[in-house]
Design a protein around this nucleic acid. Sequence first.
DNA 1: TTCAGTGCAAAATTTTTGCATTACG
DNA 2: CGTAATGCAAAAATTTTGCACTGAA
Lengths: 171, 171
Amino acid sequence: MAKAVKGSTAVMKVDPQRTSELKKRWTEYLRTNRLKTTGQREAIVDEFLRSHGHVSIDEVLTRVRKRHSRVGHATVYRTLKLLTESELAEPRHFDDGQTRYEVKDQHHHDHLICMKCGLILEFEDEEIEKLQDLDAQRLGGFKIMRHKLELYGLCPKAQGIPNGSCPKDDK
Amino acid sequence: MAKAVKGSTAVMKVDPQRTSELKKRWTEYLRTNRLKTTGQREAIVDEFLRSHGHVSIDEVLTRVRKRHSRVGHATVYRTLKLLTESELAEPRHFDDGQTRYEVKDQHHHDHLICMKCGLILEFEDEEIEKLQDLDAQRLGGFKIMRHKLELYGLCPKAQGIPNGSCPKDDK
DNA sequence: TTCAGTGCAAAATTTTTGCATTACG
DNA sequence: CGTAATGCAAAAATTTTGCACTGAA
């Protein structure tokens, strides 16, 4: 089992529409690869897709066992691997040494994080991506498959600018 | 021991000037915290500071043992932890799940990682950084303090291009 | 009926820790 | 000397794998 205090998970509402869309992709993946539908898989996938933020294997296992007790962790590992292959999950390696999985949104995006208030904005910049491709070319003819870009900064309010506002407050 | 084929490390020349500057900071750190100088520590720190790129515990241990055979890996772990506390080392978690340590001193740079052979190259792109600042402005007047950009891709060889070569082989 | 999928336990990995011994200051 | 630091082995923690059994198609 994991150590007692291991990071919590971000809070967000579940969007049933999104979840069902993702579930459809999962079913499609199963059919395409002639994989079987089993109670355990369904439970694990449902629990994972319902999650937001970054869940660890342990967290998924614990949640799944509430309904479907006899599930081994090997099955969770194996299922998360399938979810990764089907592009529905994305493994992340943070500093606590545990691999966490994140529901992979259909649209790639990068993150801008306010170091003071923790607000996370998503954005995308085609221009930057083009430059990345150029850099990869320059560095030896690499072909970029994916990338991860995180900007850490301060919103106007956090910068202490007079009348500066935080986008979070504009709601 | 680590699995056989786990990525290697980027190539760069050692800059003795830099190394000695870093070494000075290490000595300073030892004195400030009333820590002892031991043969093992010296060997590990020297080996680490001499390194460029991103070394794993195993790599450091192997190199250190060439000269100073009886060194336990616990000592390497413990020393790398000290190096991290003293701001001389920075642990990095790339998507291959292995913890690697990097000398933390050099000018900021980003990473390009080959998904097949594990080669890690460093690069920098002012143009991209300018665009990041623009995006941050656009997103609500943020001021970027730092960023993390990782490109995951395939080298020409890994792409299967005829005669394609991996920069790693250019030695 | 068939063989993919599962649980369980054992193995493999990576990192930490306990403890007797060594050796720095 | 006193005690921080070390090596070693054992423990933890995380992930993978072997295998007999179960159950989906």
